[in-house]
Amino acid sequence: MSAKEMLAFREELSRQGILFCYSGYITEEVLSSIGNTLKHKLEIDKTDKRVSRGVFSLFVEQVQNLIRYSAEVESSHQSSDQRSIELRYGLLTVGQKEERYFVACANMVPNRDVAHLRANLAKIKEMDSVGLKALYKEILKGETPEGSKGAGVGFVDIARRATNGFEFDFVDVDSEFSYFFLKAYI
């Protein structure tokens, strides 16, 4: 990218209200450092504490989704006594536009997961707060779903925290992957 292209990119981010943008291999260390910086930024802006807590919470859940589930993954194959390194690629943005904060993330997912993810998110999106609370409890108390690396309750948590709702989409990439996008508002 040339300086001109970088500036155009920077201006596009500004137009979208984006305060933080990270595209690359994302790890727990990245979560910690961007998370802390985000906390400082919200403090400087004197953001209402309730809003700040919500934004931070959306940030953590969404970034952990990237770290755990992005299908764009590279790993080192080390001998069994060493911890293997795994890096997953994701795109993260946090911003503020028209009085709302948002956290938007995108990552590759295998095509075979799209129908299930879409149905799950559509179901959650339609639920009211009472339904979400019940589902949250049900998942917490149940067995961790197969293939989940966390509690499997991340999307429900995001839906509950996103006081101004959330949106999601999938874009076809190739025969193997789709691009998954999730944007939650506070």
Binding site: E61, Q64, L140, K141, G150, A151, V153, V156, D157
Partner: peptide
């Protein structure tokens, strides 16, 4: 003061 959804599973 804050816990993520993975911690919530442990808390319950």
């Amino acid at each position: 003061v804050y816990f993520n959804s993975s911690s919530a599973k442990v808390l319950i």
